Amino acid sequence: MLNPFASATREDVMCTVRVVNTFENLAAHVELDDGVTVEPGDEVLVHGKPIIVPFGESAIERRKATITRATWLERKWTKMTGDLEFMELLEFSFSGEELS
């Protein structure tokens, strides 16, 4: 069994960053090279200056990224508590108006 208290490991990889700023879409997406996958609890830091894209345009840049791998204990904790935290992503609104 893996040591649950082992320190986190770091891995540097190249990545492609795509940023879109249009009326239909405001998005940023990172694709890691060489089929590298990110597991629950891992953190990815993309290096470099912020990518600023004017309205109506998109940009693609190559950057270096550092992946900090979660320890065994962090990974288990993330899996156990992840289902509880999804509620933070929801936005609720209540009003006094009746639905028609």
Rank of each mutant, 00 (worst) to 15 (best):
E31L: 09
A27I: 00
E61S: 14
F92A: 06
N25G: 00
M14T: 15
N3E: 13
F5N: 14
E85R: 14
L73H: 03
D83N: 06
S95M: 02
S58Y: 06
W72A: 14
A28C: 07
E85G: 10
A28S: 09
G96C: 07
T81V: 12
N25W: 00
V20P: 01
F5V: 11
P4K: 05
G82E: 05
N3G: 11
E39V: 01
T37H: 10
V19C: 04
L90I: 15
V38Q: 06
V44L: 15
L99V: 12
I51W: 03
D34G: 08
R10H: 05
R63V: 03
A6Y: 03
L99H: 05
I52P: 00
V36Q: 14
T71Y: 05
R75Q: 15
G82K: 04
S95E: 12
V30I: 15
I52F: 05
I67N: 12
A28K: 03
L89W: 04
A6I: 05
E97L: 15
W77A: 15
L32Y: 04
L89E: 13
K64Q: 08
R75H: 15
M14V: 11
E31P: 00
T78Y: 10
V17R: 02
N3T: 09
S93R: 13
R69F: 09
I60M: 09
G35K: 03
G96K: 14
E43M: 06
R63W: 04
A65K: 05
E61K: 15
A70W: 06
S95L: 02
T71N: 06
T78G: 08
A27P: 00
P40A: 12
E91T: 14
R75K: 14
A6P: 03
V36C: 07
H47I: 01
E97N: 13
E85V: 10
V17E: 00
K49C: 01
P4A: 03
T66E: 13
L90S: 13
E98W: 06
C15G: 08
V38R: 03
H29G: 04
F23R: 08
D83S: 14
R10N: 13
M87S: 09
R62H: 10
R18W: 01
E88D: 15
D34L: 07
G56I: 09
S95V: 05
V36H: 07
R63A: 13
I60P: 00
L32T: 07
E57Q: 15
E88R: 13
E74K: 14
F94W: 11
F94P: 00
R75V: 00
T66C: 08
W77M: 11
T71H: 04
T68F: 01
P50S: 10
M80V: 02
D33A: 13
M1F: 08
M1R: 07
T16N: 10
V19W: 00
E57A: 12
E85A: 10
T16G: 10
F55V: 06
E31V: 13
C15H: 04
